[in-house]
Nucleic acid binder design. Structure first.
Length: 650
DNA sequence: TAGCAAGCAATGGTTGTGTG
DNA sequence: CACACAACCATTGCTTGCTA
């Protein structure tokens, strides 16, 4: 077998280790930017914190519209019927102009099944750093309640394109979870943005109700649970709205075609083929981990930490993590997950040990809770301490519990004047309002004189609900403004410290360089002066000093390789090939080769030799693959002579 | 001045070694 | 034996600077 073919077969140390080219991937696409983010729990909290008055405004408009509609007597049926119709609410959220002057019968779809059932909401162009921390600090039931409303509303009608409201590009539609092209928080697979006006509602069959997959259930966040409520017959009552939210999510394993039919046959085949393709491609180097992928890995690894802490084999655990990622359409095997985790921990340690700045590690905050040695349990307990006892412990688990309680038991709500959840009775389709006068100043009172049992009122006064919402939202906005301000201050402080360090370092470097240059000048003057004076007494020789940058100055790029140099490199590399094949530590061999070149007056270091060789091999491979003409590789003949005969009919 | 090549940084993969 | 860790290697995309 010719050497080249052996090498092509994948010998690690072969001369020509020809691999298939991986699909180029921009580094920017690997996690640095956030194009659009599906409304995950985190994104929701961000929305909430974003001081987005637009949301409140539109919610208010929606409520007003409902009230106006009710006053017109077109929607009779008692107080429950006066709750915001999901469709109308959505319309209001979507298009203020239309909803501000509701046209009865137009703002609401004629039939709910005519609306596309599942569209998740996405936030466009928002930075969501630090949100995992902040989300833990927000365990406000009312927020979940409003989310519930929004999600229900959004499940009934398609969400608007951005172009309709360019001034507030808050929402845009994404394919629902479970859709083939949907992957939460994965900017690479973000649904394309369509600036077209809203399409007319198309008749669409109801989605099949599928019981949730237990495995999926475990990994879903509360918001995900709420994300795809299946459509049911229209109802404006809160009980129905909550029942909607209580529906189990569509299993991600079920492929739903665009027209709503189960695509178990066609898409499953396509998926199987896709999996096979992925399997084949997995032979190649995987794509870089994107930020969402990495975050999921961290989350899964953190969740399994108690089991990792136990002694015993970890392979199964990594398999579990890989499987969990697979369920989220992230194709990484256990080994890749482990490797990535090792890299992450290494990066974390670098920051911890001061080798790198915290800013250099984009996952430091995510890794810190686990790797700092604090168990998640402790942190949760701390969170509970921070926010109070019981269910007021903020964070994901709290939200999960909360939403589960909500969706399982019907609407349960008891919100105190701080907008905090205080528990409440279950199974009642009522709101509770502690003060009928709705005095906001009093509502802001930080404490209550006594704890009262839950009281309930029926929802007849939407204005009260509206004012309550406004109060809570403004409170949260203040909270988050303060939080962001304090974070900004910290950031400025860090930057200041960093700048001071850098200035100090530069000053030291300048001083050292000056000392070195002075020493060099003195030495050179002495040497040259002595020699010149010995040869031509009285004539001062040229003062030869180093470059102004000194030996530690910026390294100048070396000259391009001359043909003779390249030929010599090829020759020597060919002579050493057997040693390169045997060795796995080739740096020393490259250095040795560099020394041999140096002996012939070719000044290149080992790394330069290796890089040049890599280039030559790449060229050679292109010629071998037929991508380049043989004439484009000026060293093809020489390489062929050294490393083997060229592949026939390559 | 355009094109090309060197250099760099980042990432994933592989291998060797130490440890429990 | 499995795992953790470190070092090395391969590859890619991008920037910079040289060369024709």
């Amino acid at each position: 077998m010719p050497k080249i073919l052996t090498a092509v077969d994948g010998s690690r140390s072969g001369m020509l280790r020809i691999k298939k080219k991986r699909i180029p991937q921009s580094r920017n696409a690997s996690g640095n930017g956030y194009g659009g983010v599906a409304l995950s729990e985190r994104a929701f909290w961000r929305l909430w914190a974003g001081a987005n008055a637009a949301v409140l405004l539109r919610l208010s408009v929606a409520l007003s519209a409902v009230r106006a509609e009710e006053e017109e007597g077109e929607e009779g049926g008692g107080p429950l019927a006066a709750l915001p119709c999901p469709a109308l609410l959505c319309a209001a959220l979507r298009c203020p102009a239309r909803s501000a002057q509701p046209s009865p019968g137009k703002a609401r779809p004629s039939h709910p099944t005519q609306a596309r059932p599942d569209r998740s909401v996405a936030l466009a162009g928002v930075e969501i750093e630090d949100w995992e921390r902040r989300e833990k600090e927000c365990g406000v039931l009312l927020s979940v309640f409003i989310l519930l409303l929004l999600r229900c509303a959004c499940s009934q009608t398609p969400l608007p394109p951005l172009a309709r409201q360019p001034q507030t590009p808050l929402f845009h539609a994404l394919p629902a979870p479970g859709h083939a092209s949907s992957r939460e928080e994965d900017e690479e697979e973000e649904a394309p943005y369509h600036p077209d006006p809203l399409p007319p509602p198309q008749p669409e069959p109801l989605r099949e109700r599928i019981p949730p997959s237990p495995a999926r259930e475990e990994t879903m966040s509360p918001v995900e649970r709420l994300e795809v409520p299946p459509p049911v017959a229209p109802s404006h009552s809160m009980s129905t709205v909550l029942a909607l939210a209580a529906q189990p999510p569509i299993s991600p394993d079920l492929k739903v075609t665009e027209n709503g039919n189960s695509g178990a046959t066609g898409e499953a085949d396509a998926d199987a083929e896709e999996d096979k393709k992925r399997e084949r491609e997995h032979k190649k180097r995987s794509k870089n981990w994107t930020r969402p992928e990495t975050l999921k890995l961290i989350r899964l690894r953190t969740d399994l930490e108690p089991r990792f802490a136990k002694s015993g084999r970890k392979t199964e655990l990594w398999d579990e993590i890989a499987e969990a990622l697979q369920r989220e359409r992230i194709t990484r095997d256990a080994q890749q997950c482990r490797d990535k985790w090792e890299k992450l921990t290494a990066g974390y340690k670098e920051v911890r040990d001061g080798v790198k700045d915290r800013e250099d590690n984009p996952f430091y905050d995510e890794l810190h809770p686990l790797l700092s040695g604090k168990s998640l349990k402790r942190e949760r307990e701390r969170d509970k301490d921070t926010f109070g006892s019981g269910k007021e412990g903020a964070g994901r688990d709290y939200s999960k519990e909360l939403s589960r309680e909500l969706v399982v038991d019907g609407f349960t709500r008891d919100i105190d004047k701080d907008g905090l959840y205080r528990g409440g009775a279950r199974g009642r389709e009522t709101f509770k309002d502690d003060d009928d006068d709705g005095d906001e100043a009093e509502a802001r009172a930080p404490s209550r004189k006594k704890k009262r049992g839950p009281k309930y009122i029926t929802v007849t006064d939407l204005a009260a609900v509206q004012s309550l919402l406004e109060a809570v939202i403004s409170r949260q906005q203040r909270f988050f403004r303060d939080l962001l301000d304090s974070m900004e201050r910290k950031e400025q402080l860090r930057e200041q410290i960093r700048q001071e360090k850098e200035d100090k370092w530069r000053a030291e470097e300048r001083a050292q360089r000056g000392i070195f240059n002075n020493a060099m000048i003195v030495l050179t003057q002495k040497l040259v002066g002595d020699r010149v004076s010995a040869v031509v007494p009285g004539v001062a020789g040229p003062l030869v000093v180093g470059s102004p940058e000194g030996p530690q100055g910026p390294k100048r790029r070396s000259k391009n390789w001359k043909r003779a140099e390249v030929l010599q490199l090829i020759k020597l590399r060919g002579e050493m090939d057997s040693r390169f094949v045997k060795s796995t530590r080739r740096a020393a061999l490259w250095e040795e080769l560099a020394e041999l070149l140096a002996a012939q007056g070719i000044k290149r270091d080992g790394k330069q030799c290796r890089e040049k060789w890599d280039k030559l091999m790449a060229e050679y491979k292109d010629v071998a693959d037929g991508k380049r003409d043989q004439g484009e590789s000026p060293y093809f003949a020489e390489l062929t002579a050294i490393i083997g005969r060229p592949p026939e009919a390559a």
